[in-house]
Simulated scan of single mutants.
Amino acid sequence: MTTTTPSRRDRLRTATVTEIKQAGRRLLVTGGPAAISLRAIARDMGMTAPAIYRYFDSLDALVRAIVTDLFEELRISVEEVAAAHAGAPPLTRVAHLARGFRRWSLAHPAEFALMFGSPIPGVTPMAADCSPANDAGARFAESFFTVLEEHLAQHPLPEAAESLDPDLRQAFQPYLDTFGDRFPLPVVYLFVASWTRLYGMVAMEVFGHLQWAMTDIEPLFERELHGTLRQLAR
């Protein structure tokens, strides 16, 4: 199989795209999601604003590219955590994945806000079929799906749980339309139910919404995590 070496022009374009995204991320970190703008990036890079449009045709496109990169970074981060415990039982690895997600989120609050928080003013919220950002988010979720599927292979769900209630199954149609049936719906359901619980905890902590009540959120997170694992173990 032969490979084609990118032309100098393509290499320069790739490098400029990377630099633009890095500049956008710096603005995100220093000023929050609303600080990202093509004009500010152009100024930071010594370019004219119209020149940016040769690489990204809109602010929406740039934000989606940054989100895509962030989901890939997050996925790699949590998978490295799980890989360090490769010999552990599946649910133990799920716990490490969740802890890895929390640690990354707390270390990158601005990035977390862009990925999971309120939409940026003037930027169209990402639709369910928004690729490649949505695909990157799905690959992050698959890190959990894969381990959950391994757990269910060892500990099958009770027969009553194998088929979801018809109304609940219908509610997952957007998932089926976008990603097909690679993972059984009960696995997807378990992930979504568990994710909602743990994501809520992490979001509250990242955004500082529990500071009025607690000085250290980790014990509460661990308690909720263990409760979630008990549910998955049934």
Rank of each mutant, 00 (worst) to 15 (best):
T5F: 04
R9E: 14
R13I: 12
K21M: 15
Q22E: 15
R25A: 10
R26E: 14
L28A: 03
V29F: 05
S37E: 08
L38C: 01
A42T: 10
A42I: 12
D44H: 11
A51P: 05
A51H: 15
Y53M: 02
R54E: 12
D57A: 13
L62C: 07
R64Q: 08
A65S: 08
F71E: 05
L74P: 04
I76N: 06
S77G: 08
V81W: 05
A82D: 02
A86T: 06
G87T: 08
T92P: 02
A95H: 00
L97D: 01
L97R: 05
L97C: 00
R99Q: 09
R102K: 01
R103H: 10
W104C: 03
A110C: 00
F112N: 06
I120Q: 00
V123I: 11
M126E: 15
A127I: 10
A128Y: 14
A128G: 13
N134A: 15
D135C: 02
F140M: 01
A141G: 07
S143Q: 01
V147I: 07
E149K: 08
L152C: 12
P156H: 09
L164F: 07
Q173E: 14
Q173S: 14
L176Y: 09
D177N: 14
D177V: 14
F183P: 01
V187M: 03
V187A: 05
V192E: 10
G200S: 12
V202F: 02
M204K: 15
G208N: 00
G208V: 06
W212I: 14
M214I: 15
T215Y: 10
D216H: 03
I217F: 12
E222D: 14
L225S: 03
G227C: 04
G227F: 06
R230V: 12
